[in-house]
Structure formats: structure tokens, C-alpha cells
Design a protein around this nucleic acid. Structure first.
Length: 615
DNA sequence: CTTCTCACG
DNA sequence: ACGTACGTGAGAAGT
């Protein structure tokens, strides 16, 4: 047995690394005792984050409590694997920091299913997030194990990730190759692997105590653990990739990007992604660029370039000036390059050997609690064109189903702020934006006026002013101002609720507590954002509730992605109509007296089929 | 690492 | 007193 000693919060701790079956028997005796005293912290070390690649390996499994950690070298196989498996099977309650990652690893590589682990897990990252959801850049301490440990356990707790990076360098390895290349005998690696579980074990009771002190509901903590599990199931399922189409697309987009880059080079822009080069070249062509970025540089973004190219924000010709050929070439080259690199290529890099991509679905990411999807970022695929979404398919014999809430943030606002006329319109089944347009512009409102009513409604939720809404929508500022004033007259409850929420937050240390009990810290200089936080976070919780309903109805196996106000699913073609109705029912329920409703759309085999012609 | 840009709801 | 567009992930350039 190898042992490492360290001091945490003034107490000495021991990291044990078994080397023989005798050592493993001692490990077994330890966890059998430890599980009687309380939950056991669990962690894994792996070769990297690419859980679904065939090069991925599970290296160690660590268990621990506040004083002792055991690092089991899973990679050595045989008895090491057997004893670790037994503990994973038997311990009744685990503490894991950022459980979805370890669940996915152990499910795929250690024969311990997500279904078996999740009900036995407390995720300390969830606990920390419910105390303060802000990232370090936003003034919070974030939810990484190191800063949390420093805050709650021991300010001198070592930064194990940073420490290991130094060790990697000493061995001629990098941040990327280190996790796979470091020998399992490395003392720093073993000590730090053990420290992580000890820190997690010490963190949990302190975070629990803080949650109790703040009065955060147990029910919310439980809700988040259920959602984490549901999202982990969707991640494991993944989506089918049309590999051939994606390969063709990579090559097509690459050709396009190159062709337009060559065109741009003729005007002196050797690198289409260089804003400085572009601004200089455009100035040389006699273009006058007035917009500036936050730091004072000349702004040459898509909106600026489209206007130089004489096109609307939807790339439609305007006929107001001679199109600038450089602006057009740069727009096209950048777009093709980005779509190739960030989307198509990432699909091919992340696809597993059975042809599926498994995006990481973070069930609790944004400061409002909104979910996010990474590797690849499937919540942000272009919707103006079907070409990228066309790469992702329903399962064999299935079709794509998309079910989305109707105007959910507006309905949430109506419910939370008790907006009388909005609630009346919703219960009559009226379209909210039609209703507003009618009241502001009269019965014969135009399409453009409805669009303005919609943008003003959204602007209200975001806290936007006339200037911004005018710029974003292209509507004349006078019209926007008039609509905004009319809006305030029609729905006076919105302003009143916003001031009430800000006042409440002021009394609780600048934290607005949402209707579900979520803590939403406000930034002092933009407290107006409280309206958005209230609506965005409750809309997110409504999506969470919908996911629980979907699972209870036995439909989780069809779910593929949560996209803020939408659930994307793959359903057997023969039952698509019935399943579509069932999904819609799961996503329809009253929220504080206001009906939340959903619309289903059935597509063909590819996700792109919902965004244009399917091939 | 920061800034700018661009994709989404 | 007044007015403030919200939340993400990702790639590339430049310091």
C-alpha cells in the first residue's frame, strides 16, 4: 500500500493507493465502515473528456470521506477493477462534484449504470450553484471544486488541476496529453486524485448548512438532481449523425470559404477574420465607418457589412446602394468558415463508433438556471438554413419531433407580474402579440406592426430601451417609443412588479428569490435585469417540469435535446402522431394560474427537415 | 487572456 | 431622476 499524507483545514488526511489484494481487502473494510457513518465521496480520473471516443480510458476510481481517500487504479484491471466495481455497486450514497461527467464515464466504461448511480448521488456542484450561480467573471466564486474548497473548506487547499499541469510539463506532456500519459505511479497525480474526494466530502455538509441557512427548499435541490439525471440520459442516447452528408458539407464549406477569401484578398484583406485589416481596406475603398466597439475600435460586424453589401439582416438585396464586393466576400467567407469549423467538423470529431454524437447537456449552467449544450453546441446551430441541422438525424425508422412552448417568457411574465389584460388574452386563447398590436395600432394592424409589438414585448422582458429595440428591429425610433408608451399603459403591472422585485432583492443582499426559490443575484448597476432573470429562470423551470412529465409518461427514451423552450425528440414514424400529442400534453400545464401551452412539429428523418426542404 | 464576432433561444 | 436589451458556447486575432 502506498500512502500519502497531507493537511486539510488543520487536520491530517491520508490518501491510500492499494497495490495488492491484501490492500484491496483493507479498502473493502474501509468503505463498509465509512458507508455506515455517512455518504462516500466519489470521483474518477480519465484520459480526457472525450468519453465516447474509442481512445478514452478510465484510469482511477477514488472514494473517500473527510479524512481518508482511496485511489483505485482501475486501469490495472483484474482485482483492482473487481473491488472498485463492488464498492460502486454497494455504497448507498455518493457525493460527486459535477456528477454528470462521472455518471457518464462509469456508465460507459465501468458497467455501473447511470440509473443505478444517480438515485444514490448528491452532486455538490448543484448545491453550490443553488447558493450562488454566478461565474467568477460575474463576481461569484463559480462552481469549480478548487475555488469552492478554498471558500468553504480551507483557503490553502491546493489547486490540483494547476498542480498537475506543472507535473505534466515536467514529464514533457501538455494539458491535453497529460491525463492520458501520466504514469499511474506518479505521487502528485495520486495525492491530488485523493484530495479531490476528500475536499468533496468536506464540502457537502458545509454547503448543506448554508442552503439551510439561506432557506433554499429541499424540493428545489431534489428537482435539480432529477433534471441532471434526465439530461445525462439524453446525453448517453445522443443523436445519429449523417456522416456522409457531414463530410461532403465540410468539403463544400471549405471550398466556399477559400473562394471568397481569395476574392477578399484581391481587395487587400489577406485574413478575413482580421477586423483591423478589414476596417483599413474598407476605408481605403472610401467607405465611411461610424460605428465603434466598446473599446473604441471600428466596428465591422455582420450588420455593418450587410449594409455595405446593400443587404438586409436576412441577406435580402435592398437596392439602396452599390454593393461593396469586399464586404460581401468577407461575409460569405467568414460564414462558411465558421459553419465548417464550429459545426460540421465538430460533429465529425465527436461522433462515436456507432455513428452518434453525444453532446454534454448541462442541466444547470446559466445564472438563471438555463441549460446549455456543448461539444458540439447543439443549441446554437444556424436556423436560417437547413444545411447544418441536416447533419443530425432521427433514429432509423424514426422522424424528428420538435415541441416548443408558445411565447413562454411572455406567459411567465403575465403570471409572475399578474398582468391582468395579458392573462385575459391568454385565457381567451388569443395570440399575445396580435393582442398587443391590436390594442396599440387598432384592429387593422399590419404585419410590421405585429412584429414591432412582439419586439417591444421581448424588449420589455430584456429591459431594453427604445434606441436598442429600434436598432434591432429596424423600426423607426418614434414608432418604437410610441409602442413602448402604449405598452406601459396597457400593462402597468409589469413596471410595478419590476420595482417590487428590485426592492425585495435590495433587502436580501441583492439577491432576487424566484417563485421556485432559486437565488438570482443582481448586479448593482443593472438591477433592471431582474425582470429578465425572473422570467428566464421560471421559463427554464417550466421546461424542467416538462422533462419530468415527459419521463413520467415513459417518453424519455425519445428525447434528444432541451433547447430553452423546446424539446427535440426522435419518435418511431408509425407512432409519430400519437407521440407528438403525448409530448404536447406533457408540456402543457398551468403555471400560477396561467396556462403554459406547447406546439408540436413533426419533420422527416433529419433535423434540417423542420427548417426547409428535406432531401 | 481579452476583445471581437457570430450562432441560438 | 433617468435609462439601461437578457442568457449562453465557440473560434480567431492580437496583446
Amino acid at each position: 500500500m502506498r500512502k500519502f499524507h497531507h493537511t486539510i483545514a488543520g487536520e491530517s488526511i491520508t490518501v491510500h493507493v492499494p497495490e495488492s489484494t491484501g490492500d484491496l481487502d483493507e479498502f473493502r473494510r474501509w468503505w463498509m465502515q465509512a458507508q455506515r457513518r455517512g455518504p462516500v465521496a466519489l470521483d474518477t480520473e480519465t484520459t480526457g473528456l472525450d468519453i465516447y471516443s474509442d481512445r478514452f480510458r478510465l484510469r482511477t476510481v477514488q472514494l473517500g470521506d473527510a479524512r481518508d481517500a482511496w485511489v483505485i487504479p482501475w486501469e490495472r484491471g483484474g482485482h483492482f477493477e473487481e473491488y472498485a466495481r463492488e464498492a460502486l455497486r454497494s455504497v448507498p450514497h455518493f457525493l460527486i462534484h459535477n456528477a454528470p461527467f462521472d455518471w457518464a464515464v462509469l456508465d460507459r466504461h465501468a458497467g455501473t449504470s447511470l440509473e443505478s448511480l444517480a438515485p444514490r448521488t448528491t452532486d455538490t456542484r448543484i448545491l453550490a450553484f443553488l447558493i450562488d450561480p454566478r461565474q467568477p467573471q460575474e463576481g461569484g466564486i463559480g462552481t469549480a471544486l478548487k475555488p469552492l474548497s478554498a471558500r468553504w473548506v480551507d483557503p490553502a487547499a491546493p489547486d490540483t488541476q494547476e498542480g498537475l499541469t506543472a507535473v505534466f510539463r515536467g514529464l514533457g506532456l501538455t494539458k491535453e496529453t497529460g491525463w492520458a500519459g501520466i504514469p499511474l505511479t506518479d505521487p502528485t497525480f495520486l495525492l491530488y486524485a485523493g484530495l479531490d474526494v476528500i475536499l468533496t466530502a468536506r464540502l457537502e455538509p458545509l454547503l448543506r448548512r448554508e442552503l439551510d441557512r439561506l432557506g433554499v427548499r429541499r424540493q428545489l435541490v431534489e428537482f435539480e438532481h432529477q433534471l441532471a439525471r434526465i439530461c445525462a440520459v439524453m446525453q448517453r442516447t445522443g443523436l445519429v449523425l449523417d456522416v456522409n452528408h457531414t463530410r461532403q458539407l465540410v468539403s463544400q464549406l471549405g471550398d466556399q470559404a477559400d473562394r471568397h477569401a481569395i476574392e477578399a484578398a484581391r481587395y487587400g484583406v489577406g485574413n478575413v477574420n482580421s477586423t483591423a485589416q478589414l476596417a483599413e481596406a474598407l476605408a481605403g475603398m472610401g467607405e465611411v465607418l461610424t460605428e465603434r466597439t466598446a473599446s473604441g475600435a471600428v466596428k465591422v460586424d455582420k450588420a455593418v457589412l450587410l449594409s455595405l453589401a446593400d443587404m438586409s439582416l436576412q441577406w435580402e438585396p435592398l437596392g439602396t446602394r452599390t454593393p461593396n464586393p469586399l464586404a460581401l466576400a468577407v461575409l460569405k467567407s467568414k460564414r462558411a468558415g465558421k459553419w465548417k469549423k464550429a459545426y460540421a467538423q465538430t460533429f465529425l470529431e465527436t461522433v462515436d463508433d456507432s455513428g452518434r454524437v453525444h453532446p454534454f447537456i448541462g442541466s444547470l449552467r446559466a445564472r438563471t438556471g438555463r441549460m446549455s449544450i456543448t461539444r458540439p453546441a447543439l443549441q446554437t446551430l444556424p436556423s436560417s438554413d437547413q444545411m447544418i441541422r441536416r447533419c443530425l438525424l432521427a433514429d432509423d425508422g424514426h422522424v424528428i419531433l420538435s415541441v416548443d412552448f408558445t411565447a413562454v417568457e411572455m406567459r411567465v411574465l403575465a403570471a409572475l407580474a399578474n398582468v391582468r389584460r395579458m392573462k385575459e388574452a391568454i385565457s381567451r386563447g388569443e395570440d399575445l402579440h396580435d393582442f398587443t398590436a391590436k390594442l396599440v395600432f387598432g384592429e387593422g394592424f399590419t404585419k410590421a406592426q405585429r412584429k414591432l409589438a412582439k419586439q417591444v414585448g421581448l424588449g420589455k422582458i430584456y429591459g431594453g430601451g427604445a434606441a436598442t429595440i429600434s436598432r434591432q428591429s429596424g423600426a423607426p425610433i418614434e414608432d418604437v417609443q410610441r409602442a413602448l408608451r402604449a405598452y406601459d399603459r396597457l400593462y402597468p403591472e409589469i413596471k410595478r412588479a419590476a420595482s417590487r422585485w428590485q426592492r425585495e432583492a435590495f433587502q436580501t443582499g441583492m439577491v432576487y428569490v424566484s417563485a421556485t426559490g432559486r437565488r438570482l443575484p443582481l448586479d448593482r448597476d443593472r438591477t433592471y435585469a431582474v425582470t429578465n432573470y425572473a422570467c428566464q429562470s421560471i421559463a427554464r423551470d417550466a421546461l424542467g417540469q416538462a422533462l419530468l412529465n415527459i419521463e413520467a409518461a415513459g417518453l424519455l427514451e425519445y428525447c434528444r435535446l432541451p433547447i430553452h423552450d423546446e424539446v427535440l425528440a426522435s419518435v418511431p414514424a408509425g407512432e409519430s402522431t400519437e407521440l407528438s400529442a403525448e409530448f404536447t400534453r406533457c408540456m402543457s400545464f398551468p403555471l400560477y394560474g396561467v396556462p403554459i401551452e406547447a406546439d408540436a412539429e413533426l419533420g422527416g428523418r433529419s433535423w434540417g427537415s423542420l427548417y426547409g426542404a428535406d432531401f
